[in-house]
Design a protein around this nucleic acid. Structure first.
Length: 811
RNA sequence: GCCCGGGUGGCGAAAUUGGUAGACGCAAGGGACUUAAAAUCCCUCGGACUAAUCCUCCGUGCCGGUUCGAGUCCGGCCCCGGGCACCA
């Protein structure tokens, strides 16, 4: 064994060993329990950042742990290779997006290898390759034929100067990031996936995901947003139209004092034709980008359309307004306004002097509440509501919905917040949407034999519009139906599609005849999925939707893609997110160079629990290195002189108990809690005890336990140390240490003594001590006695194996 | 604005089911070894009071509540972060 810890040398040796022995090649084996561990695949942005390393270290540590527990582990890796940054790089550096992407994949792949992650590299996927996206195109057509795909108009950010659609992040303060032009919302035809067809199942099945963090499930539940309410029809006075609104509070229908419709609502557009002021208002409303946060925070503005509508429950006429806070994409594009009981309507009514009419009153004090400052938004009892007066929220909703249905002016309805998924992108670097437009036959999907529709990789990139629109050799084609000239769709897919099914393709990435084969049902669902919390809603919801749709196409057997989920926090530096744009990134490569991969991995696992954000600290990295070095030195010393000069049986027994307590703790932390930080702390504690007790006890057992249990986190140094200790088998093939419960037995233990909940002493007592004795010993303590002077003992609470609390009162 | 998290020493954090607040580590200070430095090892390390490492009091963002007992539960606030459907 080398006397000095030399990470560079031992890391290269360990990695060479794994490569030579094809250690991480995963093979299907029906006789062995499988464990599919997947970290969210990276976007090949250029080089790894510390957040990636944290994510992949978590995945690797979990994979190696379960491997040592005897599971057949699959841990694949790939590249989420389509996306906007490649186009930006293309404009900036005059390099085609494909070339830039493949360079990045090469570089980042090499970096991953130097970190020693146990991937099955034979299964590597890059989503920008035709052999991957051909099956995505194929799947899209299957969904189309199932009726889960349709085309409709929807709103995008339009840059009128660059004549380009912009992503939300490319709109800064309402202006295009390159042109500086004011952005307008514009409607264009786009392809949609009917995720709403699965809304109910996506909601219900959250209950099956018992191993998902509660916060992620709550976020998804709220995002799907199932709401019971009612559709109500308001007739427009002197016109043929009716305005249809959805409300979750039909109980407040008598409090409606105006209706508001979205600027894009057909009736608003009709009025605008003859009213220049309304026309101008609607034009102004089109400025700004498409984002919910944008609408929710903008100043509420509106205009009276000069029309009246009739409230079907009481025949009252109320004015019809157009308002910028009503969204055409949500519900019906029209709302009923009840200023007395809705905060937004209240603000709007106050601003424009519209009436505020109370119809709900608090149950406990049946009085008119003060509406001069704010709306009363709680549930209560109805007043001023005709025959419905006196009813509570639920009864009122029920009775009013029944009334609406009887009079045929509305009905009860379930509303979903979830909207269908728009998948068209007016961009080049994405998978082509496999559709053909024919003058005679209409929209025709590309036949399977013609897949993939290959994205041309050699392109001139200037950043104004998609290059595909200027490439007749791409878009000119023949209609598969009538053989007449036709045109291809030039939009590409949202890159979220690639990441919605890649986890299943990892089971059989080499299959050329089908999207999946029987290996997919061996490996899926993913047993452990790990990724950033920022993906809690969109990516995970889309993947769940795809999985269910693929199940219904009989492509896969299970109902959910990810059995267990770990949502990782961000890596921060100086309290803010570490990112390229802030310019505070840390390069993992120089750290590997200086300290080695094990030190970096160790620090990232030790710094904080995975779900929390992690504060970067250079000195913390040094601390990690120091510990690994101490472990190296300790092992070297042990090999030189295995037996203590002055052995003692009681010390040996004590050390053994500490060792097995630690094994129990670390096993639980790895397998159940995923709190690698406390697992490492426990190993350090054992290490410190071991060092202290090494004069009087043989340390073989705890030393080997620490090395084994540290191996998922720091696989290189433990590989070398295990060899040095004389083991024939490589540590990666060893099994996880087992707890010997006999070693845990204790004769006596410490009890905490409290008086009125405050710590006043400790007693050491036999584990089997009777409560009577514990009480007596507690009361005999000098410090306890002092606190009992002049007091009367009320009762004594004993918490088993923990504490004795004496409750006293002034005598 | 809405939804979801978080806030504990100088710093990262621990306290798993309501039961000893600060494990483990970093930084700092003191000491040993050394010609010296680095490395290593040992000691101290929330605040106040104190001769003291005793005792006592205060202390987990802020205000209030429940309880024998609250970092943990409940109500109300403040601040920070993530997401909000075209960044991935």
């Amino acid at each position: 064994m080398e006397p000095v810890y030399n990470p560079k040398k031992i890391e290269a040796e360990a990695q060479q060993y794994w490569e030579d022995h094809k250690t991480f090649k995963a093979t299907e084996n029906p006789d062995q329990e499988k464990f599919y561990c997947l970290s969210m695949f990276p976007y090949p942005s250029g080089s790894l950042h510390v957040g990636h390393v944290r994510n992949y270290t978590l995945g690797d540590a979990i994979s190696r742990f379960w491997r040592m527990q005897g599971k057949n582990v699959l841990q694949p890796i790939g590249w989420d290779a389509f996306g906007l940054p490649a186009e930006n790089a293309a404009i900036k550096h005059q390099v085609p997006p494909a070339k830039w992407t493949y360079q990045n994949i090469k570089h980042m792949g090499d970096q991953l290898k130097r970190l020693g992650f146990g991937y099955d590299w034979d299964r590597e996927i890059a989503t920008c390759k035709p052999e991957y996206y051909r099956w995505e195109q194929w799947l899209f057509i299957q969904l189309y034929q199932k009726g889960l795909v349709y085309r409709k108009n929807s709103v995008v950010n339009w840059d009128p100067v660059d004549q380009t659609v912009l992503a939300n992040e490319q709109v800064i303060d309402g202006r295009g990031w390159r042109s500086g032009a004011k952005i307008e919302r514009r409607e264009i035809p786009q392809w949609f996936l009917k995720i709403t067809a699965y809304a109910e199942e996506l909601l219900q099945d959250l209950d099956k995901l018992t191993e998902w963090p509660a916060q992620v499930k709550t976020m998804q539940r709220n995002w799907i947003g199932k709401a019971e309410g009612a559709i109500v029809h308001f007739k427009v006075v002197n016109r043929a139209e009716e305005i249809e609104i959805f409300t979750t509070c039909p109980d407040t229908l008598f409090g409606v004092t105006y209706l508001a419709i979205a600027p894009e609502h057909p009736l608003a557009l009709t009025v605008a034709e003859s009213n220049p002021l309304v026309h101008q208002f609607i034009e102004e409303c089109r400025l700004g980008k498409v984002a919910e946060a944008e609408f929710a925070t903008l100043e509420k503005r509106g205009m009276d359309l000069g029309l009246k509508v009739i409230n079907p429950v009481n025949g009252e006429t109320v004015p019809l307004w157009v308002a910028n806070y009503v969204l055409m994409d949500y519900g019906t594009g029209a709302i009923m306004a009840v200023p007395a009981h809705d905060a937004r309507d209240y603000e709007f009514a106050k601003k424009y002097g519209l009436p505020i009419k109370q119809v709900v009153t608090p149950i406990e004090n049946n009085q008119i509440c003060d509406l001069s400052k704010a709306a009363f938004v709680e549930k209560g009892k109805l007043i001023h509501s005709g025959q419905f007066d006196g009813l509570g929220y639920k009864d009122a909703c029920k009775a009013i919905i029944q009334f609406l249905e009887e009079k045929k002016v509305g009905q009860g309805q379930i509303h979903w917040r979830l909207r269908d998924w728009g998948v068209s992108r007016q961009r080049y670097w994405g998978a082509p949407i496999p559709m053909i437009y024919c003058k005679t036959c209409g929209t025709v999907p590309v036949p399977q034999k013609d897949l993939p529709v290959v994205l041309p990789e050699e392109v001139e990139f200037v950043g104004v519009g998609s290059p595909l629109k200027k490439m007749p050799e791409f878009y000119k084609t023949i209609c598969p139906n009538c053989q007449q000239p036709a045109e291809r769709e030039t939009d590409t897919f949202d890159t979220f599609i690639e990441s919605s099914w890649y986890y299943a393709r990892f089971a059989c990435p080499d299959q050329t005849d089908a999207i999946f084969d029987e290996r997919a049902d061996y490996w899926t669902p993913v047993d452990q999925y790990i990724g950033g919390i920022e993906h809690a809603i969109l990516h995970l919801l889309y993947a769940r939707f795809f999985h269910k749709a693929m199940r219904d196409l009989k492509l896969i057997a299970s109902d959910e893609p990810f059995s267990r989920l770990l949502s990782q926090g961000m890596v921060l530096k100086d309290g803010t997110k570490m990112s390229k744009s802030v310019g505070n990134t840390v390069d993992p490569e120089s750290l590997i160079e200086q300290y080695g991969a094990d030190t970096l991995r160790f620090f990232l696992m030790f710094g904080s629990p995975p779900e929390q954000s992690l504060e970067w600290s250079e000195s913390g990295v040094e601390g990690a290195f120091r510990f690994l070095k101490r472990l190296w030195d300790m092992t070297a010393k042990y090999i030189k002189q295995p037996n203590p000069k002055d052995p003692r049986e009681d010390v040996q027994k004590q050390l053994r108990r500490l060792c097995h307590e630690t094994i129990a703790k670390v096993t639980d932390d790895f397998g159940r809690r995923h709190t690698f930080n406390t697992a490492i702390a426990a190993m350090m504690e054992l290490f410190n005890h071991m060092q202290t007790l090494s004069k009087n006890a043989n340390i073989k057992e705890p030393l080997e336990a620490i090395i084994l249990m540290l191996s998922p986190i720091a696989p290189h140094i433990t590989h070398a140390l295990w060899n040095a200790l004389g083991h024939q088998q490589a540590i990666i093939d060893e099994t996880w240490p087992k707890v010997d419960s006999a070693a845990l037995v204790k004769q006596s233990q410490e009890w905490v003594v409290q008086v009125n909940g405050k710590l006043r002493g400790n007693i050491e007592a036999p584990v089997s001590a009777a409560n009577q004795d514990l009480e007596r010993w507690a009361l005999e303590q000098e410090n306890v006695k002092r606190h009992l002077e002049g007091k009367k003992v009320q009762r004594i609470i004993i918490v088993p194996n923990k504490l004795i609390n004496i409750v006293v009162k002034d005598a």
